[in-house]
């Protein structure tokens, strides 16, 4: 009995030690990182004032400017739609390669997995830099950037869906004498369709957010206007754009949630 008690105490103190070390490690890492950044303390100290200064210059938003941002706003949504569509088209064969039960062999599986993790690991803004060189500045480059960025996300989740397909209905459809197309249409599509619609609309929602920034490197959308207004020190228009971004993001969240609720 007494032995058990000391055992427990020892475990407890080791637990404490680990916690203590973790906290200490975090503090050290924080301090080292802070030093590394070589932050100018004067800047850091004045930062709150600078920020509030900027905000006061932005207010009130420039209502007259709101007419001019309708077009870039729509373009942002368009980029998200085309990008998501492009990603979807590429993600399905990628998922086919990256799903354990459909991939032809180990090499194709590795290729599928590589495409999935590489495209996910490269941020949309980097893809935008690349596609602006490929297609020239504009929304087309943006759509490709958003699309390539989304392949991995969609591919990974679609592959998981494919791996979870129930094989019995597929067998049942084959047993009726249906051909490969109708077997897929009745045996597979209904099993994956709600998930695919859900994933596509969810990713589109994320992509609206992503499409707001690719304009910083010339790939179209509202980001381009934001960059331009900042360069022009037109702070009231900047606030108008920020409000517009907020609205478009919230609206697309609602739309995406509605469409997902209808796909079951």
């Amino acid at each position: 009995m007494a032995g058990e008690l000391t055992e427990w105490n020892r475990y407890d103190s080791r637990d404490h030690l680990i916690r203590y070390l973790a906290v200490l490690g975090t503090i050290v890492a924080f301090l080292v990182s802070w030093r590394l950044l070589e932050v100018n303390y004067e800047f850091a100290a004045t930062a709150p004032r600078e920020v509030s200064d900027l905000l006061s210059r932005m207010y009130p938003p420039d209502a007259a400017y709101s007419g001019e941002i309708a077009a870039p706003l729509v373009e942002t949504v368009s980029i998200a739609i085309l990008g998501t569509t492009l990603a979807f088209v590429i993600a399905i064969p990628t998922a086919y390669l990256g799903a354990e039960n459909t991939t032809p062999n180990a090499i194709t599986y590795a290729i599928g997995k590589f495409i999935i993790s590489f495209t996910r690991s490269v941020n949309v803004i980097i893809w935008a830099l690349v596609f602006v060189i490929v297609f020239g500045p504009g929304a087309l480059a943006g759509a490709f950037a958003v699309g390539f960025r989304s392949i991995g996300f969609l591919g990974k989740l679609i592959a998981e869906e494919i791996e979870e397909i129930d094989p019995v209905p597929v067998r049942a459809m084959r047993a009726t004498g249906a051909n490969a197309f109708t077997v897929a249409l009745y045996g597979i599509v209904p099993q994956v369709k709600p998930a695919l619609i859900g994933l596509a609309t969810y990713r589109w929602d994320i992509n609206v957010r992503e499409s707001t920034v690719i304009g910083f490197v010339g790939a179209g959308g509202i980001g381009l206007a934001l960059d331009g207004r900042i360069d022009a020190h037109d702070w009231n228009a900047v606030l108008t754009i920020l409000v517009a971004i907020l609205l478009i993001v919230l609206v697309s969240e609602v739309v995406s949630a509605y469409l997902r609720s209808k796909a079951r």
Binding site: D166, V168, P169, R171, A172, Y186, P190, Q191, K193
Partner: peptide
């Protein structure tokens, strides 16, 4: 089929 083989979502 034993497990019915129905397509659940149809």
């Amino acid at each position: 089929f034993q497990e019915y083989g129905l397509v659940d979502r149809l």
